[in-house]
Nucleic acid binder design. Structure first.
Lengths: 123, 123
DNA sequence: TCCATATTTCGACGAATGTCGAAATATACA
DNA sequence: TGTATATTTCGACATTCGTCGAAATATGGA
């Protein structure tokens, strides 16, 4: 991954609205959510959300797919993998104990049972 | 981890100079590097670097320790762990195969042998 | 074709951000 | 105490960023 791509990804996430959108879509899974529903859920104006979605897509964090009148957006988990690899590049040089916590965190977060109160969206 | 803390961390990293600083310190390991040496290595003005370092420390990404006239900065790996957990919160809800790649990436990056040409800094 | 719905694009405005020169602070040492 | 080195703080400047209203585009259906 290139430096400028990493910057694009980080700054895309470094904004409250976009971070909320991304996390919502991470929880929603591969099916994603239509733009309008995202806007309603997060209380964002449709045009504002549209710019934010464009930024997230351009950064490679989301995918979009048209379904009739609706456009569904979904998170792209590999975008996070790539970012982590970039940030931890050459991190421990023979001293794995230094960055082991990061690996542990990824494993723990990945397979933790859902904490949300509402049941998962049906496919 | 709180939303505002995540934003602070992401926007701290979402700037070329600061991202370079953080990655340099990740590679340097727990001993860290003095501010002046960071500035020289990355070709940044001392006062500019100083503001950037302050932002990274305030975001919890770096620690600083004075040693005589010098101040050594070091990366804080747990900052990344916490960020990953926050981003992947409730990510796979029963479908671990979805975010497994992220876990794999963390493991691969963590214990990969150093790729840099120059040998690791001696302790 | 005409209309309603979903989403995006455009243009402008205020707020936040990064960089720089100059000055201030902190430490070491003679 | 005085001086040199390391780092930070201050103030100003141009640039970038997020949001909003209004208008445009795309799709589906009558």
């Amino acid at each position: 991954m290139e430096s400028s791509a990493a910057i694009d990804r980080l700054s895309a996430l470094a904004q409250p609205g976009r971070l909320d959108v991304f996390r919502l879509l991470v929880r929603a899974g591969p099916d994603g959510i239509p733009a309008g529903e995202i806007a309603a859920t997060l209380g964002l104006a449709p045009n504002t959300l549209s710019s934010q979605l464009a930024i997230l897509v351009h950064a490679g964090l989301l995918t979009s797919a048209r379904e009739g009148r609706v456009i569904r957006y979904a998170a792209r988990p590999e975008a996070l993998s790539e970012l982590i690899v970039y940030l931890m590049d050459d991190c421990c040089g023979g001293r794995p104990e230094i960055c082991r916590p990061v690996e542990e965190a990824a494993r723990a977060a990945c397979c933790a049972p859902p904490k949300s109160k509402t049941p998962r969206v049906r496919a």
